[in-house]
Design a protein around this nucleic acid. Structure first.
Lengths: 352, 352
DNA sequence: TTGAAAGCGCTAACAT
DNA sequence: ATGTTAGCGCTTTCAA
């Protein structure tokens, strides 16, 4: 296989009886060319089944008109929501979008390959909920390609970050539960990679502090943003001597895991126990009962990310280093008033 | 911006005091080069922060080592399962994988752009559950690039197709319900794009025919593979004078939609009504009750697709034109014996 | 309006 | 073990 089977512009030009350059112009519409030659060239192109080689075109102009999105875990609903929103935004600015699934491997192992792909193929990159080593982040910061991150709070970084307001979102969630009369409110953590879980926990602690309720370490349970682990954690929570009357899960997926553990025990949501999530993934609205949660403005965030990226691609200065979007409390049916407390429990709850 | 900011191999070679070619060899490890120069060049590359331009490299060898996956709807769980499985398979053969989300637009509108991207960037393409116009399919068939499709049955095609055995899977599903004593079995259709829904419906019809039960058009309801529409359809099904005792949904997502409508009516699954899905997406196992369904062997199918694609990329003849994988019945808790029939209904059911 | 030449960054093939 | 030449397919000069 010496030659790539494809038809090249040279072939088209030859058939049309013009120079390569003329053919190029006729097909791209850039520069001048008579209607006549244009028609002739287009006919030739069609006849030969000519398809321009994207690579070669990209090599010249520094622009590829492609934006890359890097994710670690495509099966995450949140990631999915962002990717879908980004796809639509990118289309609006007339670029193409390719998604690269690093399968959780960013910086370790073969991560090197990714950072190589990084170059030349894209005009810019969006990292969605990235999960990267510190080394990798450093490499990225040094890179000259335009980069924007979505929801990365693990470290301070010089890269632009578009994110939700996790602290205030979480505070709102917990305040809402407090208003409903809950006092024993559990928190299910997510994994630490993006730093979001920590912020949400901070909001949780802040709301409790404002209400004068001491933090009970028993009520904080480990999680990884996924259903399974939240289910296991909730089982333990429910087995506590003084179990919570409400659970704030750091993600909707985990909130749905809580649902399962709660039902398993024969308890009702929200009569016996309230559950509130974070993110507002599609499954939240479809759950039984529909899940109360905090909504990320996915579309707005995607738009901001793309705009910021385009600005950098065009060489304009970035507008802001960090863009935060407030999360909106979506009240559905998984939250309700705290159940009337039993005397024994009441006394224990008060002791704090 | 005349020059791309990036450091090129020329810069590295200059700094290291060697020729470009030597630098190339030292970095790639191909061909001979002394340890000394290798070290020198690598140091220079590191110092300058050199990143090879993927594009330029691709232009030479006809191979890009990239496989593209084209999907219409990334938010579909089934698509997601395939993409994830493909990502892993592709990694095993040491290629990279990029995902292109056509957002439902394949052949119409800007579809042209996609088919252009097709060229040069990829060594091969996998279309997952494609949703394309006939024109587009024809273009693809004429294309010289290696292409494999997953679960496309809409038309006969010369392209290799890796697919599940929809007819027999559906037949198994319905046979199972029949064994459980169900006689009024509804079917919720999916959208027609890939042709899978039709095949599943055929299996449904076949199983009923084998059991000597006539098809009741009232029991067949429209759907689009998604939760919402199945929910609406199920409401109508349940409002029927002689409602079904079991529902076979053409996808898990729809089966979960059925769940909602059933619960809404205060009915229990599976005591009052059984539900069976198709695909075995992750949410199926986590549902309440866990959903009985037909499992696609995602991993095996992804592997077959990648292997077939690699064979074509390497210029070897494709092994098979069409590779089918049987679906496996996964019995969970959403199916149970048919409820004892009421006299009135019994008689109607018998009339067929 | 068209054409010729140059070169993007890299590597295969052939020298040295 | 290293350097030189040439060329991938296209577009950006510049000249006609």
């Amino acid at each position: 296989m010496k030659k790539k089977a494809g038809v090249t512009l040279v072939d088209v030009a030859k058939l049309a009886g013009v120079s390569v350059m003329t053919a190029s112009r006729a097909l791209s519409g850039e520069g001048y060319s008579s209607e006549e030659t244009k028609a002739k060239v287009q006919a030739a192109a069609k006849q030969l089944g000519y398809i321009p080689n994207a690579l070669a075109r990209m090599m010249k102009g520094a622009k590829t008109n492609v934006i890359g999105v890097v994710v670690n875990d495509l099966s995450s609903s949140v990631v999915n929501c962002f990717v879908t929103a980004l796809s639509e935004e990118v289309r609006k600015v007339d670029m193409d979008l390719f998604i690269y699934n690093s399968l959780g491997d960013m910086g370790g192992g073969k991560g090197k390959r990714l950072s190589q792909m990084l170059h030349g193929l894209w005009d810019g990159l969006v990292y969605v909920l990235p999960r990267m080593t510190d080394d990798y982040l450093e490499t990225l910061e040094k890179s000259t390609s335009p980069i924007v991150m979505i929801n990365y709070f693990r470290h301070e970084t010089s890269l632009p970050v578009v994110g939700g307001d996790n602290v205030n979102g979480a505070r709102d969630a917990v305040s809402y539960l407090l208003e409903l009369g809950h006092r024993r409110i559990a928190f299910v953590r997510g994994s630490a990679y993006t730093g979001q879980s920590d912020l949400r926990e901070r909001g949780y602690a802040a709301a409790l502090a404002e209400a004068g309720i001491a933090l009970d370490p028993e009520l904080i349970c480990e999680g990884n943003f996924q259903e399974q682990m939240a289910m296991e954690g909730t089982r333990k929570l429910l087995a506590l001597a003084d179990p919570p009357t409400a659970i704030f899960a750091a993600s909707d997926a985990m909130a749905l895991g809580c649902f399962n553990a709660i039902r398993e025990k024969g308890l009702r949501i929200p009569q016996d126990i309230s559950v509130i999530g974070f993110d507002d993934i599609p499954a939240a609205a479809m759950a039984q009962p529909p899940l109360t949660t905090l909504r990320h403005p996915f579309e707005a965030m995607a738009q901001a990310a793309v705009q910021e990226l385009m600005r950098r691609i065009k060489g304009e200065p970035g507008r802001r280093h960090r863009i935060e979007f407030p999360s909106e409390l979506v009240m559905r049916e998984s939250t309700g008033p705290a159940p009337a407390a039993m005397p024994a429990k009441r006394s224990r709850a008060r002791q704090v």
